[in-house]
């Protein structure tokens, strides 16, 4: 059974208001039966420092990635993970995290690969919850394990692989990394160690829209009008477009995927999680350097 939707006025302007909840709403509903609150952070220890009472932790690195393949976990592992967190297939899952929900959006995207129906983000994430001095705890959450069905991942609708990108030229690409990563000056975020992609730059024709532009200073999503100005105005996206977003490993672009899909209503948005750590090292793929998007290579079907 789904939890009720948050009727917050701001959310009603988005294409899919049901994908967001406010801090007020969560404070009121966090103990509802059938609702599970998940924290997913960039900092692997942050949950232990303090979390929303009753919430469970899902770590992108240790929980969602396969240890052998560079890939996400398979259905059986996802089912085991969900079961261990007390999540059923019918649960309403509300995810929140640090850094404007960057990793929370990534977790939400992985939930969506498995077709989990009701998964939402806390608008403003951990930052806003803390800024409002709401309740936090270091107490361990006691979880009653559940049975979650083994569901096959369905990658195709929302996930792009390298060959999908090569076939995509001529359609819009969004590079959500920082300006210096886009132009090729750096291969990772400012203030992060250089990771060692062989070449810096971007995928030819990609528009540069750093992911965090979608977040306001209080970590909430920007208004519908502001987002339309950025993505439809500046980046030139139009209804019906087939869009691929990418970053370094697919986490920041999950945030943009969420914005384009659920807030702006684009129906064909895929996240290329191989992103620059694959593309910047791959053999026989073209790149563009500098601040201009560059010309479209011929698509490779």
């Amino acid at each position: 059974m789904s939890a009720p939707f948050d009727p917050t006025e701001k959310f009603a302007t988005y294409a899919h208001p049901s994908r967001l909840v406010s801090t007020d709403w969560l404070a009121e509903h966090r103990n509802d039966a059938g609702l599970v609150v998940v924290e997913s952070d960039e900092d692997v220890l942050l949950y232990e420092v303090g979390h929303i009472p009753g919430s469970v932790k899902i770590d992108w690195h240790t929980d969602l990635n396969d240890k052998v393949n560079r890939d996400y976990i398979e259905g059986a592992a996802f089912a085991a993970l969900m079961g261990s967190k007390g999540i059923t297939r019918d649960s309403t899952v509300v995810i929140y995290g640090d850094k404007s929900n960057w990793w929370a959006a990534y977790a939400l995207w992985v939930f969506t690969l498995f077709g989990h129906d009701d998964v939402r983000l806390l608008d403003g994430g951990r930052t806003k919850w803390l800024a409002e001095a709401r309740e936090m705890t270091t107490d361990a959450t006691s979880v009653t394990p559940t049975e979650y069905p083994v569901v096959s991942r369905n990658d195709a609708p929302i996930r792009a692989f390298k060959n999908d990108v090569l076939a995509h030229f001529g359609n819009p690409l969004i590079d959500v990394r920082s300006d210096d990563e886009y132009s090729g000056v750096r291969t990772t975020m400012p203030a992060y160690p250089e990771e060692g992609a062989l070449r810096g730059g971007h995928i030819p024709t990609a528009a540069s829209v750093p992911w965090a532009r979608a977040a306001d200073t209080d970590s909430t999503f920007r208004t519908r009008t502001e987002l339309d100005d950025i993505y439809r105005g500046e980046a030139g996206l139009s209804d019906g477009d087939d869009v691929i977003a990418y970053c370094r490993i697919g986490e920041r672009s999950s945030h943009t995927w969420f914005v384009l899909t659920y807030l702006l209503g684009f129906e064909n948005v895929r996240n290329y999680d191989g992103s620059w750590t694959e593309w910047g090292n791959a053999v026989a793929v073209p790149i563009a350097v500098g601040t201009e998007p560059g010309a479209a290579p011929a698509p490779r079907p």
Binding site: V44, H61, T62, Y192, P193
Partner: peptide
Amino acid sequence: SEAVSPLRLRGMSA
């Protein structure tokens, strides 16, 4: 290295 991503560990090296 298994629990913390390599990118974060490199911060400690720095």
